[in-house]
Nucleic acid binder design. Structure first.
Ligand SMILES: [Mn+2]
Ligand SMILES: [Mn+2]
Ligand SMILES: [Zn+2]
Ligand SMILES: [Zn+2]
Lengths: 134, 134
DNA sequence: CTTTTGTGGAGAATCATTCTTACCTGTGAC
DNA sequence: GTCACAGGTAAGAATGATTCTCCACAAAAG
């Protein structure tokens, strides 16, 4: 953890290490509140404000990403910073990770050939809305 | 407008017609607040709460969509309900429409052949993050 | 050791969104 | 026409996520 924080240019404080560990250990796409609960299980003195501020700085330096969502009432964070896609279940509101290098290649090739007007793309993420089955 | 509302199963009240017209006339991906301002220009008695509730019911019946975004502090609405994609400018925070039937076909074909495990997709939307150029 | 700078905690403040409640409006029955 | 009823709306309060302010503390620098 210390190394990751240092590499990102952040001082490795106790709180930051805890918050980063909590983020990594939580499955799915946790909210700041969920990260806070996880942090509190270990050290009950860390404040929710610190979790918010720290997650923001993590996003800024690329240690985590925010998950895009259409109807979210609160932000969700993704500890997986590699390019991947998401399945949005319209029934359960779950956001499920979807990783497919073939798809990545397909999209990259598409835009390599036929570029965008007045726009330099940096990353692609496909949002697949639908329903979970059996 | 009346017909659209009726077809969607909503009574065509004065306020709903106004809100739908305002949504259609506003460029880009307006917030509820922006829709409210547009509505107020015509009829200054419509309340912001009504705009929120009405936009929600429009989303429910498919007259509009919410735009997914990672760091939004408020919801944005899209009067264009056809499947299309979005460019997210990380500099200006603009969300720009991107429509490309070839891309749609590519994605549809990809998932037609090689389906998803335990998930029935209904719609696809590609989020392209990057920066606007000249 | 002293100064400077960064970081964190507590709680207030802000802002988008939702809820409550009472009033109004259109509709159909009679 | 009157009446009853259902749905829709305005106003403002309430909620809840997020941000800010301010002060104490810790860590680095000199
Ligand atoms: Mn908490
Ligand atoms: Mn307003
Ligand atoms: Zn993810
Ligand atoms: Zn759009």
């Amino acid at each position: 953890m210390q190394q990751r924080l240092a590499a990102a240019g952040l001082r490795a404080t106790h709180q930051r290490i805890l918050i980063l560990e909590s983020l990594l250990v939580l499955p799915g796409h946790p909210t700041a509140e969920q990260v806070h609960r996880q942090v509190m299980a270990n050290t009950p003195t860390v404040s929710l404000g610190t979790v918010y501020k720290t997650l923001d700085s993590f996003v800024e330096v690329g240690l985590t990403k925010r998950v895009a969502s259409a109807d979210a009432q609160c932000r969700r964070y993704d500890s997986d910073c590699s390019e991947h896609h998401h399945l949005y279940c319209t029934d359960t509101k779950e956001i499920i990770d979807y990783c497919n290098p073939q798809l990545d290649a397909l999209i990259r090739d598409f835009f390599a050939k036929q570029g965008l007007e007045n726009f330099q793309p940096h990353s692609f993420s496909l949002h697949i809305a639908g329903t979970r089955v059996s």
